[in-house]
């Protein structure tokens, strides 16, 4: 190939960008995984959730979540006819050991599992002063715990209350969408252990993922859509009273 200096110089920046994408291909631990091929999200089917707390326990076991802190938790809503705007919400120990029995009562009950929404325009990553939290190229909001100062700006910024300061490490901690699992072709610990299939990991970049059909045929909402966070945890048949 004849390449004069002028053309070589023109192609140099393009080659540099291309090489960056080659390097972007694989997180070290997962050889067959290309980050740019995925855009992770989760689907939560409210009518299927029985409030067993399996997801909360599984998350704690998989990720060594300290007691009293939660990367995922389950809330039980009780909406009465006379107080539709302010439902009674309980989440004893995050729903880890289930919920107290609800005797037959007026109004409606339902469970809302919550976790990091892995927002596409996340407020938490925008406020980090040092670049310790970020959205990975495959759409997962992660924390670089060796870089985090523990200033807790992100904890305040998250409108969903999904972050906490790890009491031992004194740095921000949150749901990683089990990044160490999904990059190996497994599902998250919470989805793996949900007995009714109420939680489903979904890849929005995979055209064969059943989430596309589901989003078209069901009434699906995200939490706090008015905040324009680009939340990627989709709730099927979410009640209007859920905040």
């Amino acid at each position: 190939m004849n390449l004069d200096r002028r053309h070589f110089l023109i192609m140099l920046p393009a080659a540099a960008i291309a090489w960056k994408y080659v390097l972007a291909g694989t997180p070290e631990a997962s050889p067959n995984y290309t980050m740019t091929d995925h855009w992770w999200s989760m689907l939560i089917d409210i009518p299927k959730c029985i409030g067993c707390g399996n997801c909360v326990r599984a998350c704690a076991a998989e990720n060594d979540v300290p007691d009293g802190h939660f990367r995922t938790w389950v809330e039980r809503y009780h909406v009465t006819d006379w107080h539709m705007e302010s439902p009674e919400v309980i989440s004893p120990d995050g729903g880890k050991e289930g919920f107290p029995a609800a005797s037959e009562d007026s109004g409606k009950y339902f469970f809302v599992p919550k976790l990091c929404n892995h927002c596409a325009d996340s407020p938490c990553t925008q406020v980090c002063p040092v670049g310790a939290t970020f959205i990975s190229p495959d759409g997962v909001v992660l924390v670089d715990q060796t870089y985090c100062l523990g200033c807790a700006y992100c904890v305040q910024a998250c409108p969903y209350g999904c972050r906490y300061i790890h009491p031992g490490k004194r740095v921000a901690d949150k749901c990683t969408l089990c990044y160490h699992r999904i990059t190996k072709g497994l599902t998250t610990a919470c989805c793996e252990n949900c007995p009714t299939g109420a939680r489903q990991l979904a890849d929005l970049k995979d055209p064969n993922d059943p989430i596309h059909a589901f989003l078209k045929t069901h009434h699906v909402q995200v939490l706090k859509p008015q905040m324009a966070t680009g939340a990627k945890v989709f709730y099927n048949e979410l009640d209007g009273s859920v905040r």
Binding site: K20, L23, A24, P27, E28, A29, S30, Y33, M35, G131, A132, T133, F134, I135, S136, P137, L142, D144, T146, Y147, T176, Y179, H180, T183, K184
Partner: peptide, 15 residues
Amino acid sequence: EYGHYRGAAIGEIAA
């Protein structure tokens, strides 16, 4: 490497 953060952190979390 990918943005305003330490790119190697992704591999560390995946591991």
